[in-house]
Design a protein around this nucleic acid. Structure first.
Length: 566
DNA sequence: AGATTATGGTACC
DNA sequence: TGGTACCCCTAATC
């Protein structure tokens, strides 16, 4: 009897209990918990066999009678960790993640297939909603065509994407990186904020040097912007409820606003600041909080201007603010109420938004295009990047939706698709990817370059040594430099001088850091021949996993023990 | 080496 | 409407 044979190979664990209460429900729980102790060999033999379970219960009862106590019978049946059912297993097989077939696709959220067979994964542009023909030619469109369209070249030049890049590693932050900002005039300076509220100032040509300001904020530095009037000054908004204005040379900081003047009064009243932008024309700092309000601060008087205004659903986080680069009165906000909203700063009142851009989930970010300001790109945790064309057109629906994996919102900084400020056609966007791909046996999370006009994945950047996810990415305003924040580390990617196409797949270019010279992942035995003459990893990628070896480039985190060493 | 944890959004009642 | 259980590819720490 086949069933019998299986049953005998089916291990059974009986645990005695001191008390006998609620046997049946307890049993089930323990079954799940201990299920993973099962031996791989035995798992294979075990398909779902309800009979087996019944027999076990009988056996348990027999023991029960004998001892007068209620033991727990644990069937070591392998269950899917996602749906708790047997017969399949979700999880990594090597570097490939196998989805639970009982759930909708993890990538596009549609039922009927899994991520592996998702059409959006096979070819990203496949499932893109094409730009609809908008009804046009109202007076505003005329204005748009006259005043702004000329800024956008009619013929889109080819993207300049390097075939291979060098990667410098700056490992400093003691908590995950939350935001990055390039210096507006000094090409080598990058600022980074972290979850602890610390502000790092980096010259990425001298990555051994570090300047870190740890006393500006006490928790998450959510957004920062350089002062348009003075590029030695940076404004930052933090979850500690304050807006800071910091001199980069001295590190001296003033607080422009404090939403928690009475300190901690409990989680229900603590206000946090998320979205922030500056309006140079009006001399304003605009910040938004976790209760749905925007606050305006006059930078000249350093004082709050007017009352706070409810711009999103009351009690929800407003995570992004952006002033239009061409029309500074035009403000874009986005938040956890599933909306991005357009506002006229001159008439900023509750319920008076010019447009509401509906999303199905939380909107992580919303940005105007950097040159003309005529496009909006939003990132939502429904795994879609949306493009909204023409700020004067119909904004009830996006002109394009691009399925892209970035829906992880716990433990990671939220993903935000950001424009390439150098792209004259305003169509290149960079965004980190959550879901991993199997690259030669390593599960890597690339940083994607997406052409939002076609939905195509133009390039994906990764390094075999960087196995963490990079949710924070920023493209340099003038140079071919990409800065990434991944967990506690920063990465600076620059094109390699001598290019050689590593791999081309259809139209997608895979940009790998030092692929040829990189060692396999996992072995910490890095034969460190010290190519430390260069600040960049010209010879080989640094193995972030090896803690024992002194890394070439890496700066030790400045927390606790390692700090002493340096 | 495996458990723990920091955490935020959502679904469901 | 609030309370809370739940959650699929984390990453660092002990």
């Amino acid at each position: 009897m086949a069933t019998r044979a299986r049953r005998t190979s089916f291990p059974e664990v009986v645990i005695e209990r001191d008390t006998d209460t609620e046997e049946s429900s307890d049993e089930e729980e323990v079954e799940d918990d201990v299920a993973e102790l099962n031996d791989p060999e035995e798992e294979e033999e075990l398909e779902e066999e309800e009979e087996v379970e019944k027999e076990e219960v009988k056996g348990k009862e027999a023991i029960n009678d004998k001892k007068g106590k209620s033991p727990i019978t644990i069937s070591l049946k392998k269950v899917c960790k996602v749906c708790k059912r047997t017969g399949h297993q979700a999880g990594f097989q090597g570097a490939t993640y196998i989805d639970c077939p009982m759930k909708p696709c993890f990538l596009c959220k549609m039922p009927g297939h899994t991520t592996v067979s998702c059409p959006h994964r096979a070819a990203m542009e496949f499932g893109v909603i094409p730009a609809s023909r908008k009804r046009t030619h109202n007076s505003l469109d005329y204005v748009f065509e006259r005043q702004m369209r000329h800024r956008v070249p009619s013929i889109k030049p080819a993207f300049v994407i390097p075939d291979e890049v060098n990667c410098a590693v700056i490992r400093y932050h003691s908590r995950r990186v939350t935001c990055l900002e390039f210096h507006p005039t000094n090409n080598n300076i990058l600022l980074s904020g972290d979850k602890k509220g610390q502000l790092g100032v980096w010259d990425f040509n001298k990555v051994h040097e570090k300047t870190v300001y740890g006393n500006i904020h006490s928790c998450l530095l959510n957004n920062m912007k350089f002062s348009p009037a003075n590029d030695g000054t940076i404004y930052a908004a933090s979850s500690d409820g304050t807006v800071s204005c910091t001199d980069l040379e001295t590190g001296l900081s003033t607080s422009l606003m404090d939403l928690n003047p009475n300190g901690w009064q409990g989680g229900n009243t603590w206000r946090m600041l998320y979205g922030m932008d500056l309006n140079a024309e009006k001399g304003l700092v605009l910040v938004a909080d976790n209760f749905g309000f925007v606050h305006l601060v006059d930078v000249r008087s350093n004082s709050k201007k007017g009352d706070s205004i409810l711009i999103h659903k009351k009690g929800t986080k407003v995570v992004g603010l952006h002033c239009n680069p061409v029309q500074p009165d035009l403000l874009l906000s986005c938040g956890n109420d599933h909306f991005a909203r357009l506002w006229d700063i001159r008439r900023l009142e509750a319920e008076s938004s010019l447009h509401g851009l509906p999303h199905t989930r939380v909107v992580n970010s919303a940005y105007f295009s950097p040159l003309s300001g005529s496009k909006i790109v939003t990132t939502s945790i429904d795994n879609r990047i949306r493009v909204w064309d023409s700020i004067f057109g119909n904004l009830d629906t996006p002109s394009r939706e691009i399925v892209h994996s970035h829906d992880f919102n716990r433990h990671l900084t939220p993903f935000r698709a950001e424009w390439d400020p150098k792209d004259p056609s305003e169509s290149l966007v960079v965004v980190g990817r959550y879901i991993s791909e199997n690259y030669n046996g390593a599960a890597l999370h690339p940083i994607d370059f997406i052409d939002i006009s076609t939905g195509q994945l133009v390039a994906e950047v990764m390094d075999p040594n960087i196995t963490t996810i990079s949710p924070v990415n920023k493209l340099h305003p003038r140079d071919d430099v990409l800065a990434s924040g991944s967990s506690r580390s920063l990465f600076i990617w620059r094109p390699k001088e001598k290019s050689e196409i590593v791999q081309e797949k259809e139209d997608r270019k895979i940009v790998v850091c030092d692929r040829k010279n990189s060692k396999k992942l996992g072995d910490g035995s890095d034969n460190d021949d010290d190519s430390g003459d260069d600040d960049f990893l010209g010879k080989k990628g640094k193995n972030l996993k090896s803690k024992s070896k002194k890394p070439n480039i890496v700066i030790a985190p400045c927390n606790s023990k390692k700090k002493k060493k340096s």
